[in-house]
Every structure is written in C-alpha cells, then in structure tokens.
Nucleic acid binder design. Structure first.
Lengths: 206, 206
DNA sequence: GGCACAAACGGACCGTAGTCCGCTTATATT
DNA sequence: AATATAAGCGGACTACGGTCCGTTTGTGCC
C-alpha cells in the first residue's frame, strides 16, 4: 500500500508508477523497433510497422514515445546508458584507473565509435539524438572533470563543448564518409587538438 | 548557333542550358518560398503552398529542388554565397586586409551569427543545411589558409574541422538557447580555443 | 467482489512529403 | 512555318507522421 501522503501530494512525489500494461507495451515496442532496425534498417521503422509488430495500436506508440524521433531517441538511450556506465565504472583507460590524459583520449575515441555505429539512428532521432540534453550534459560534465584534472585553465564549459563538437555524428560522417579520411587519422587529429588544449604553456597560471 | 561538336559530345559540355520556362519557375519558386519564410515562418513553407504561391504545380517544385530539404538548401545557398563573397573580397577584418589572426576571429564570429540567424532554415534543410558540401569545403579551405598564414603546424585539415565544429548550428543553439549562455561568452570561448591552437609553443618546428 | 476513475488503448482521420505518368511546350533543325 | 523531341509541367495518388476521441482496462479503495 502506498504512503497516503504520496497520494495527497503528488507533486512532491515521483510521477505515479506506470501502469503494468503500459510498461509491457513499452518494452514490446522497443523490442519491435530494435528488431526492425536490426533486420531491415532504420527506414523500415515506421510508426505503423512498429505498432503492428508489437501488436498494439498506433496511438499507443505515440502515447509512449511522442514521436518517431522520440522512439529513436529511446532506442539510442539504451546504448547511451551502457556507455555512460563504462565511462563511470568500466575498465581503464575509458573507466577510472588510468591517468586523466589517457582517459581523455579513450573517451574521445570511444565516443567517435559510438556515434558512427549509431549514425543512422542518431540522424533519425533528430533533436532526440546525440544532442539530447542528457547525453550532452553527461559527456560535457565528464570532459570538464578530466580537463580540470589535467590542470587546464580557462572556460572549461566552452572547452568541453569545443572538444566534443568534432565528435558529433555529422562532423564524423563528413570526414570519414564524404572526405574518406580513415578513422584512425581522425582520431589522431583529435588527439592533436587535445594536446594543444591541455598544453602547459597555454595554461600558465595568471 | 551552338558548336556542332558540343551537340555531338554532350558529356564534354556544360549541361545544356536550362529552358526559359524552367528558369522562370525556379525564380518564382525561390521568391515564393522566401516570402513565406519571411511572413509566416519556416513551418509554413509546405511544398503545396510554395507551388500555389508561385502559380505552378507541385510536381514542378520537386522537379526543381528534389525535396523540401533541397528547397531550403537552395534558399540558404543564396546567403551562403553572399557571405562567401564578403570573406573573399569584403571589408576587413572579415575580408582581406587585416592580420590573419584578426581575420580568423572575425571569421568565427561571423559564421556564428550567420548560423544562428538561419537556424530554423538550416534545421529544415537537414543534410542540405550548413553541412552541405560546398559550404563546408569553402569554410574549411579558408580556415586552412588562415591557419597556415599563422604558422600553425599539424594536420590543418583536421584542425580546420575542429575549429569549425563548435560553430555548427546545433552546438550554438545548445549553448545560447538551451544553456542560455550569452553569445559574447561563446565568442570569447571560441577565441580562447583559437589562441590555444595557434599558440607558438605548440607549433614549434619539428 | 464491486466501484470509481484515471490512465491507457486503438484506429479512423488529417496534412504533408514525395511519386508517377499522360499532357504541354520550348527549342533546334530544316 | 512546320516538325521532332527532349524537357518541363501538373495534379491525382500513395505512404507516413501525427492527432483525436470514444472505448477499454488496470488500480486503489470500500
């Protein structure tokens, strides 16, 4: 039985628990969408096909995920969460335990791979893609932490954004697919950018 | 009369001149689209309304611009071209005549303003937006030129991309609209990034 | 168990992007 | 001027994202 106070002051509460049928349908829809992506590619994920595949009505898909972009975002969110766990508590050098500079390089490389792997999905997710608020804010927060560990001075908020920006999917796709630059060269370029930003000479105490 | 050779070897030729009615319709469509954007915002620019407004059929809009994104891209292309002209031959510090470092700062600031001004249009243009090949390659080329003038060593191709990336609309919108950072702070942050990249100590001859 | 009600459901419906194909017209040639 | 032909044209048609609202169902309370 729920605490009666929770019922009376719902605004102070967690939003009320999701109804069981709703939860079941959400899982079924995510599973159906993931399967469609796997088997037929992102373009085959229409709201109708996902609904049919999950055995629910179309309205339900929109109720759960608001829009196609929202559905794609939810799909992305799963791997984003796994990745964040690796950064927070996975093995070094991505996870804790390695020197900050190594973690920083591993962070960038790993993010590039993640964004390229999910390029189609990120594109389909639009605003809900890699620039969703939670994804951006986690990455930026971690980046600021690593930069401060390295003694970088300046506007860490902006510097984090600036180092993250070339890891965005649109930029990576341009470089690796349009300009046909090997991924390793892109990584090396980013490493050089990092070197310049953390360079001791430009971070002299004022 | 055309050179007979041109008729016989069309592959060596410029693509045949656009038919006069086609050219007229293209202008009418661009004008109609620009007017709709101006008066009612980007969302009001549906392919039907543009066609009606220009007094042509819907199929004609698609024939000329392939897609809604293509139409938006064509609209953007006009201001992009004007901007490129300013960079190439406009007044300093954006145009030639100022020291390279000042031109670089002006370049970044100007690009930010341009991208923010056209944020809606760029979003609606999707792939045809600010990352269209011609826009990206012009900006990158100019950036490489300025960096080389400044004696920057390293992978100029990547460094140009890295300095351009934080000027992308999605990043700027995140910073100025979501995080509510004043544009001047963003500019200052970018200036600092530039300082680090062109810093003499990190560009010592090997 | 029975009741009340908010939440969830589903599918008909709407607007828009994009396709298709038979008709029209500009242009080059004679 | 007449003709041939490729390019252009237009609007009916399809598919998909998104909305709406009458119906169903899970949940907490008695």
């Amino acid at each position: 039985m729920l605490d009666p106070l929770s019922r009376q002051l719902p605004l102070l509460d967690q939003p009320p628990r999701e109804r069981s049928d709703a939860a079941r349908n959400r899982e079924a829809l995510l599973a159906a969408a993931a399967r469609l992506v796997e088997e037929q590619g992102v373009d085959a994920v229409t709201m109708d096909s996902v609904a049919t595949e999950a055995g629910v009505g179309k309205g339900t898909v929109f109720r759960r995920f608001d829009s196609r972009e929202g559905l794609m975002g939810a799909l992305l969110n799963r791997s984003e969460t796994e990745w964040q766990a690796l950064v927070i508590s996975g093995p070094p050098p991505l996870g804790p335990g390695a020197p900050a500079i190594e973690r920083l390089h591993a962070f960038g490389h790993s993010r590039m791979e993640l964004n390229l792997t999910h390029a189609e999905l990120i594109r389909a997710a639009g605003r809900a893609g890699s620039r969703s608020y939670s994804a951006v804010s986690f990455a930026a927060m971690h980046m600021r932490y690593l930069l401060s560990e390295l003694g970088v001075r300046g506007d860490l908020h902006f510097l984090a954004t600036a180092l993250l920006a070339p890891l965005e999917m649109v930029v990576l796709v341009q470089q690796t697919r349009v300009d046909a630059i090997p991924l390793d060269s892109v990584k090396a370029g980013w490493d050089d950018l990092v070197r310049r930003v953390v360079c001791p000479e430009v971070n002299r105490p004022v």
